[in-house]
Design a protein around this nucleic acid. Sequence first.
RNA 1: GGUCCGGUGGCAGAGUGGUGAUGCAGCGGACUGCAAAUCCGCGAAUGUGGGUUCGAUUCCCGCCCGGACCUCCA
Length: 449
Amino acid sequence: MHSLVLHNSLTRRKERFEPIDPQHVRMYVCGPTVYDLVHIGNARPVVVFDVLARLLRRLYPRVTYVRNITDIDDKINARAAELGVPIATLTGRTTEDFHADLAALGALPPDVEPRATGHITEMIAVIERLIASGHAYAAEGHVLFSVPSYPAYGRLSGRSPDELLAGARIDVAPYKNNPGDFVLWKPSPPELPGWDSPWGRGRPGWHIECSAMAWKHLGESFDIHGGGTDLIFPHHENEVAQSLCAFPGASFARYWVHNGMLLVDGEKMSKSLGNFITLREALARAPGEAIRLLLLRTHYRATPDFSDAALTEAKRELDRFYRALEAFPDIHAVDPPTQVMAALCDDLNTPLALSAMHGLADAALAGDFEAACGLRAAGDMLGLLQAAPEAWFRGAGDDAAEIEAAIAERLAARKARDFARADAIRAELAARGVVLEDGPRGTTWRRAT
RNA sequence: GGUCCGGUGGCAGAGUGGUGAUGCAGCGGACUGCAAAUCCGCGAAUGUGGGUUCGAUUCCCGCCCGGACCUCCA
């Protein structure tokens, strides 16, 4: 059995992964705030942790993968007000869009997908524990976490408390005892969503939901917590602080795994910068698997620059894989090849795994059936090569019969050695994006990229 | 400014203290009526200056460049 090594942000080095319970691995990943369509930067952690979940399921008997939906947030409130709809309408619709987009990327659903609004009770319980143990205080309808009460604050993000105080660049609210203190609960005016609490009608701060949901679904201590590097501070730092103070003696997440930022034109793609490409737009330009491959061609901690050229290249790479599978309609399930497993077990080295897959494709193209089976199994680990080769090459379209007819006409012309006519037909098809391939078993066709 | 990450062929992108994977593109050849696909072959890279070492792309230090974070963010 391969042993898994993961880069742990907590120690900034690769560590051998040793689950708390080898019979049951537990992972929590930060999901989206549902106020708008996700962009392809948001898609990266989804794909990365989907691969990690697939790998964990291969290595361990049971895995619980939790990915939350943040459905209460000021951006949601603002957008709902703008649209003049209740927040539940906006978040429900956006969640459906999210699910549809991810399905197109071949991402399997997590085992649990908790929503913040369904866990207000748990959040209040965590906050009460923090107040009772002196780690939080109520002031002017707010409840704040007291950063000085937790000396290890800053450990995950590698910052000293002094530095964090000095660096506090927001206006310090008057009800804060300390500039670094952050909100656990805040009052809601009547026009905004709110829940009754011991501190009056209000709504949760951003960070508390993940502490509450991880606790509810995975327990006080669990194995892996994932998300983008941009979440390390303040979100994950605050989560750790809350959870460790609310549940002393527990470890919260033992391994923190963070994916790097996807760039576009050299800058982070983000909703706030407005330089994003929605996943839906990308899906209109290329098949979901091409986008997925684009995201997996780069190691998850690196920062790839998204471009149409990269998308095209990913599509071509998949073309070769599918061509290698094409000749073997009766592929059967086998264990993923050792080289692929070894690459994935080394901190999810997907580029190296893909390189091994190219070797398998070469062998399959040379007629090696076992290699084709291995390639397909490797594809299953990465969530790639899930289509039938014919469907991949011919794609959607209702003009197949028309194309077949043109091919038949061209065949007749070729038999009559009327190559001018045959070439004219091929050129017409090419103009429509259809490429012909004359092989020993007749002429086949595919749609060009 | 502080903290952290990174700089590898035309592009993308791994590994490695001892003659630098893989993919895409390009070039030559085979196959083909011609193509396409496939196959064979070719050219092409470790930001910069030091240090450690028999030997550094790899380890250490300085510099330059790029990116992330520094309380909205995947």
